[in-house]
């Protein structure tokens, strides 16, 4: 038994353990920040995807819509692993380095904002056309319809979909460990995958699982709570 505890894996585990809270924090931090930034870009795009189409509240020229859709589909079709490598120069440019938690935020945002835009689009499409028409009949401007009708009316769905985005970004963030991103993904890959330390691999993964569970249940609860259609 003492031999088991004296094993080099356990020794490393105990050495690494004090850094785990910091790595967990890095994972949370990069997930939240990336989700927020992806939302900053994805929300307006998602709005344009719905409002800009023919018969929408702010119809845009057809070529603009084709370009927008094509651009989003293009970014979404690049596998994350490859995209991460492709944007390394960009990360250097923006963050000053291509290594670390902060640097990983650049590929995370680029990979996730098109996905977020599609999720926002799906949510906004759920808004009843009759309600939008009612707002138009009361003299609402397109901007007022977007900010006072489309977004507030689809809020529960938006919250659910943003939760999905955040959990997906958390997964991507773990993958970023491969190219030097920080956080729990880095721990699992560096110690578990490269050095066969199964203890750290499973431990870091278990923490990621717990984070996803917590995020998902908070998101679900929020979505239910803000939905006034339920009695």
């Amino acid at each position: 038994m003492s031999e088991f505890f004296a094993g080099k894996y356990w020794q490393t585990f105990l050495e690494v353990l004090p850094t785990i809270p910091m790595e967990t924090w890095d994972t949370i931090y990069s997930t939240v920040l990336s989700t927020a930034l992806a939302l900053v870009i994805g929300l307006p795009l998602g709005v344009l995807l719905v409002a800009g189409e023919k018969g929408g509240v702010l119809p845009l020229p057809k070529w603009v819509m084709t370009l927008l859709n094509g651009f989003i589909n293009l970014l979404r079709s690049i596998p994350f692993l490859i995209l991460m490598i492709m944007v390394i120069p960009l990360s250097r440019l923006i963050v000053g380095t291509s290594i670390g938690t902060k640097a990983a935020i650049v590929p995370l945002v680029i990979a996730s904002f098109p996905f977020v835009a599609r999720l926002i689009e799906t949510s906004l499409r759920e808004v009843d056309g009759g309600v939008i028409e009612a707002a138009q009949s009361m003299g609402a401007t397109p901007f007022q319809i977007i900010t006072k009708v489309m977004i507030p009316e689809s809020l529960p769905s938006l919250v659910s979909n943003i939760t999905i985005a955040a959990t997906t970004i958390l997964g991507y963030g773990a993958m970023a460990g491969i190219i030097g991103g920080g956080g729990l993904g880095k721990v699992a890959i560096n110690y578990g995958y490269y050095r066969f330390n199964w203890i750290l691999e499973y431990f870091a993964t278990a923490l990621l699982v717990v984070l996803v569970q917590v995020m998902q249940s908070v998101g679900t609860r929020l979505a239910v709570r803000c939905d006034k259609r339920l009695r």
């Binding site: 009759g130 009612a134 009708v149 803000c226």
Partner: peptide, 10 residues
Amino acid sequence: FQQFNLLMQR
């Protein structure tokens, strides 16, 4: 309107 078209979240 027939379907009232009220804002359900307000």
